[in-house]
Write a protein that binds this DNA or RNA. Structure first.
Lengths: 341, 341
DNA sequence: ACAGGCAATGTTAACGATAACATAAACGAC
DNA sequence: GTCGTTTATGTTATCGTTAACATTGCCTGT
């Protein structure tokens, strides 16, 4: 009379304890770092655990200890080298402490961001990192009341919720405008998206306009190239548009290196010399800008540095080494390359 | 006599229940979709919850119901448009069911992958998706014993652990070699990384060698360009190397579009005409290949499709609509563009 | 008018770990 | 040799939610 194989529930610490002849508490200690368990006992426990196929249950641990070891992170898009670098820096900085990243993306939409933040907070992260400083009212409330460290990145919010690790997108673009003007360009255009979804892109356009006006120059050569975030294709289309409508333009600043590269290729297709007939500037210091011919003048916002600083900040706050809201600014570098010589 | 503000523990369902005058169980039901609660009661509960600043505790829910609503995913690198697209397709397909992605990256290292898999399994995901079919023995064991659906992607493992959603990297490259030969190229080189870290890259190189030999052609023009995954810079370096050492080479197939683009720029810097003097093929159908001048012949492995199919498969398995291990092949497309005309 | 059914809600115990406290044994200082 | 201290381990109760079962009341059909 053979029974059907029982559904065989996965083993728990109690099973490991039974197999080793100790109490569950000792098993629990054996899986911690600093706990006081004799080497022999720990060895026996871990071996029994491996033999039984026991896998630590982080959920139960979390519920009792009220520590999830999660850090929640929202980024606009997972498919973006800049944000990926920030997550990389963050992840590396948190790894040694056993903090795991719970990642979500908002698709550049603050309503989606609100939904995402709520979902993430349900997992009770130890801290939450959001990209950007613009949120729905409810999202702000959720973050404020979450009772955990909140870090806004990639931006310089006028009214920060908690901590900030970022920079001013507008000021960064101003630096590039200043450079272009100093080199002698006057009829300068800006290529960006056509909506306010991408707030960092919008800030860059506003920074462009303000900087041009500060120089007493015409700030109306604005090409809106499609729904943000715009990429290579839209950059190329925008350059086509620009060359047809405003052919006397001498230089163009693009909202990103990707659109700048697209714009560059359109010049190549049309035989427009870069930088001879058209100078180009980008934003973001993507790899492509360093490799393409001609290489692209750009702004390096140090995405990995943002992530690394955010990680360090989180650890300091968790260790109570820091109690007041921090505002960490990482001034972006202007990188001069062939496209604006 | 003012007391110091109490640490004010975050409200629980019991608090919401008290505030609404119902039992905690009814509050629990109000937060579910299908549960039987009257509209009036649910409304009152949700309003009270919002007023108290209550946030659902997914950890406790998970522990009791044994459902985490997590799907674990490992990718080699977060900073890669192909894998990002796969995660995007996966995420979109799982979102409607409330399944959240728990993402980790292995840095192209199967030892790191093992560590990561163990970490992820501790969170008790409903399913686990791994990139690639090569794992450490212990990782294989962990996956096999996890008791959840396992899906290997982006590959065609010889001995699958569970389900597979992928394609043969070797066969895909063979298709490109066949094309190059048909068009008349004979002295064809391959540019890739110099180690076995990136198993998909290695498979592509092996596919190249096999295909060349099948045509009776010299398969020794192999340029190793650095630690995988190689990118634009390494592609440029490799092309420089190739042009100096094997100047009679007529065409080159690169392990990725990124290295192919780097190789292309090196040709541009040296005045080597593409495709006139050197034809180039890439892999991955990255955006850059469609935009650059000349545009790049490439292979489209349909990363988003891999993600979407994986999501659909996971839902089918969870719903028990499918019980046997699935092997879903998405044959990559060869995309012919200017760089190999 | 009453059985049967369904909708809305309540009660109890449990998910699997560990914080907090308790205890036993070993060790050293004087 | 006694006492305090440290080390290794055990016991009990609990984290916040929900599965499973129980109950109440209202509606429907005959």
């Amino acid at each position: 009379m053979t029974r059907p194989a029982p559904p065989r529930k996965p083993p728990t610490m109690a099973d490991v304890a039974l197999a080793t002849g100790v109490s569950p508490m000792t098993v629990s200690r054996a899986f911690k770092r600093d706990a006081s368990v004799s080497d022999a006992t720990r060895e026996a426990i871990l071996q029994a655990a491996e033999g039984l196929g026991y896998v630590f249950d982080a959920t139960a641990s979390t519920l009792r200890s009220q520590k999830t070891n999660f850090v929640a992170v929202t980024i606009p898009s997972i498919n973006n080298a800049n944000f990926a670098d920030t997550v990389g820096g963050l992840s590396d900085g948190l790894k040694e402490r056993g903090l795991q990243i719970l990642l979500g993306y908002t698709n550049y939409d603050i309503v989606e961001e609100e939904r995402l933040i709520e979902q993430l907070l349900r997992r009770r992260p130890e801290a939450i990192v959001v990209t950007g400083g613009k949120h729905t009212d409810r999202a702000r409330r959720l973050l404020t009341n979450a009772g955990i460290p909140v870090i806004e990145t990639w931006d310089l919010p006028s009214a920060p919720i908690g901590h900030v690790v970022g920079f001013s997108n507008a000021l960064a673009v101003r630096g590039m405008v200043d450079h272009f003007v100093a080199v002698g360009y006057r009829r300068i255009a800006f290529i960006g998206g056509d909506a306010h979804r991408d707030t960092r892109g919008t800030d860059r356009r506003l920074g462009f306009i303000a900087a041009m006006q500060a120089h007493g120059l015409d700030a109306t050569r604005l090409i809106a190239a499609g729904v943000p975030p715009i990429s290579m294709r839209e950059g190329a289309d925008a350059m086509a548009h620009l060359l047809e409508r405003l052919p006397d333009t001498e230089a163009v600043i693009c909202v990103s290196d990707l659109s700048a590269f697209g714009a560059l290729t359109e010049c190549q297709r049309r035989g427009v010399l870069v930088p001879g007939q058209m100078a180009i500037g980008g934003f973001g210091n993507y790899e492509i800008g360093a490799i393409c011919v001609p290489s692209l003048t750009t702004i390096n916002p140090d995405p990995r540095g943002i992530g690394a600083n955010t990680a360090a900040l989180i650890l300091d706050v968790i260790d109570s080494k820091r109690t007041d809201p921090a505002v960490i600014m990482l001034p972006p570098d202007l990188i001069l390359r062939q496209s604006s010589r």
